[in-house]
Computed example of a mutant assay.
Amino acid sequence: MKARHILIIDDEEDIRAVAQLALEAVGGWQVSTASSGSEGLNQAYLKNPDAILLDVMMPDMDGIATFKALQLNVLTQQIPVILLTAKVFSADQRRFAELGVTGVIAKPFKTMNLADQVADILGWDN
Rank of each mutant, 00 (worst) to 15 (best):
I6L: 11
L7V: 11
I79N: 01
V88Y: 05
D92P: 00
Q20S: 15
F96N: 05
L41M: 13
E39G: 03
I9R: 04
L41S: 08
A22W: 13
L46H: 09
L54Y: 01
R16H: 13
T33M: 13
L75C: 02
Y45A: 14
N42K: 15
V18M: 15
L83T: 05
D62N: 07
S35R: 03
M61K: 05
T85Y: 11
G37D: 06
G63Q: 01
V81T: 10
I64H: 06
T85H: 12
K68L: 14
E24Q: 15
Q20V: 00
V104N: 08
V31W: 10
R95C: 07
I79G: 04
Q93A: 11
E13M: 14
S90N: 12
Q78E: 14
G27Y: 12
N42F: 00
L23P: 09
V31K: 09
Q78C: 03
S36Q: 04
P59T: 04
R95H: 12
A86W: 03
V81H: 04
A34N: 12
P59E: 08
L99G: 08
G27S: 13
A17G: 10
S38Q: 12
V74H: 08
E39M: 07
Q43E: 14
F96G: 03
K47P: 01
F96Q: 08
F67E: 06
G40I: 04
E98M: 07
E12Y: 12
D11N: 15
D50S: 03
V26Q: 12
V56I: 10
E13C: 09
V101D: 01
A25F: 11
F67W: 08
Q93G: 00
A22R: 12
S90H: 11
L41F: 07
N48E: 13
D92V: 02
V101F: 11
G37H: 05
R95N: 12
P59M: 06
I79T: 07
L72W: 01
M58E: 02
E98S: 08
I52M: 06
A22T: 14
